[in-house]
């Protein structure tokens, strides 16, 4: 599907007097899209609207070209991994997945085959016949993910799938999401664990206070910061000498040393030019650079800037 998979026009949702989403206009295209925002930003509201659990207060939303609320035809094409840690505690993972697949419309034998296959994918085969109530957080998360991918949906909506997981489980979830994408499905991934989302996503949508702050690739988002000084941290043998040299340049806004004097925090309005000329300054001052990093290049910085 080349067009947008999700289109929202003037989409708003109130919960009584509380605003969940505020007149959002949005187009989400294929691939893996990260839905990023702090708590209460409206991510879960948007996810619930996309999966047809709630209706918009005003505005319209179309997912894969259809209105989602209680739309069975559309729901057959969607997989949803909710953030709530709510499972049928007395059921085993196998029973739950089979039940979910039967609800999805699969015949009994197909449901069994699909369940066995997806249990292998999420590495839960050994524990599949134990009641869910005895599962660890990571196992429960994998069960939730399994039911959302088992029927190979066109669109996978995952609400905070990485929350509370250990590094191994996170890697597994990341791998599953990449595989889902590789088979041609689209993924909408909601999270506030920014550094984990960044390597997974093609595009991000930044939400705060129910509004879209920005959307695009991480690089595009970074370019939104044209007028915002970018930070560079330099570790050098002689940081003071480097600082003196840097402050002679117009595009360097500030240069400050750590209390222990080991690192130099530089703010510049033109990061590309700064990086281009840095080797020259290093040679001029013989300051011996040990490391160089730009925290602003990460999604976290974009997020911090946009939200604050």
């Amino acid at each position: 599907m080349s067009g947008p998979i999700i289109i929202a026009n003037g989409l708003a949702r109130w919960y009584g007097q509380v605003l969940g989403l505020n007149r959002v206009d949005l187009e989400i295209r294929g691939g893996i899209t990260g839905l990023i925002g702090p708590n209460g930003a409206g991510k879960s509201t948007l996810v619930k609207l996309v999966t047809g659990q709630i209706r918009p207060s005003t505005g319209k939303i179309a997912v894969l070209g259809q209105t989602p609320f209680a739309n069975r035809r559309l729901l057959a094409r969607i997989g949803y991994c909710p953030t709530d840690d709510a499972l049928y505690e007395d059921m085993s993972a196998r029973t739950f997945l089979e039940y979910s697949m039967r609800l999805q419309g699969l015949a009994r034998t197909d449901a069994r085959t699909t369940t066995t296959k997806v249990l292998e994918t999420v590495e839960l085969t050994d524990a599949a016949d134990r009641p869910v109530r005895g599962y660890s957080k990571g196992m429960r998360q994998r069960v939730k993910l399994a039911q959302s991918i088992a029927h190979e949906p066109e669109l996978l909506v995952a609400d905070e799938p990485l929350a509370g997981l250990d590094p191994l489980a996170r890697r597994l979830v990341g791998r599953i999401l990449q595989e889902t994408r590789a088979r041609g499905a689209h993924v909408l991934l909601s999270s506030h664990v920014l550094h984990e989302v960044e390597p997974l996503t093609d595009r991000i949508v930044l939400l705060n206070h129910g509004r879209i702050l920005g959307q695009g690739s991480v690089a595009e988002m970074r370019d939104l910061l044209v007028h915002h000084p970018r930070k560079v941290v330099v570790r050098a043998h002689r940081p003071r000498a480097l600082a003196c040299r840097l402050l002679q340049e117009e595009f360097v806004v500030s240069a400050a040393l750590d209390p222990d004097g080991a690192r130099l925090h530089v703010e510049t309005v033109d990061l590309d030019l700064f990086l281009e000329r840095l080797p020259t300054w290093v040679c001029d001052t013989s300051c011996g650079v040990l490391s160089l990093e730009s925290p602003d290049a990460s999604l976290e910085a974009v997020f911090d800037y946009m939200v604050t």
Binding site: A70, Y80, A86, Q104
Partner: peptide, 15 residues
């Protein structure tokens, strides 16, 4: 109450 209703209503089933 158990918040398990989500599992049903995001499936293509008649409510």
């Amino acid at each position: 109450m158990d918040r398990t209703i989500t599992w049903v209503f995001v499936r293509p089933v008649s409510r």
